[in-house]
Design a protein around this nucleic acid. Structure first.
Length: 90
DNA sequence: CGTATGACGTGCA
DNA sequence: GTGCACGCCATAC
């Protein structure tokens, strides 16, 4: 299983209304120092089965989204995650 | 097969 | 407190 596939699986397992940071995903995928790839991979791969909108920066700020940050923010809010100025409110 | 890249993260000036 | 620069590693071309 390639690293990217593992990332996808993990992202798919993220429960609704929750967010995960890139480093967390990379860590669970087996490459704690490959968080950079997580974002890179998700960006290149537009898989609708993967809720990539739940992936945010470790700071809590929203990073990017293949469908547009605007949509990502709205989706998270819809799922129960509160966003403020592009940042996830903990 | 080799090079360049990228939705990040952290440290240091 | 803010800004800049480096590091890190699999994927794509």
């Amino acid at each position: 299983m390639a690293f990217k596939d593992k990332v996808y699986s993990l992202v798919k397992k993220i429960p609704r209304g929750k967010t995960k940071s890139y480093s967390e995903i990379a860590k669970l995928a087996g490459r704690p120092k490959a968080w950079r790839l997580v974002g890179s991979i998700l960006n290149k791969n537009k898989n609708p089965n993967v809720p990539c909108h739940r992936i945010i920066r470790s700071d809590g700020f929203l990073a990017g989204y293949n469908k547009g940050l605007r949509k990502k923010e709205r989706l998270l809010k819809k799922e129960g995650v509160k966003i403020e100025k592009g940042r996830v409110v903990h």
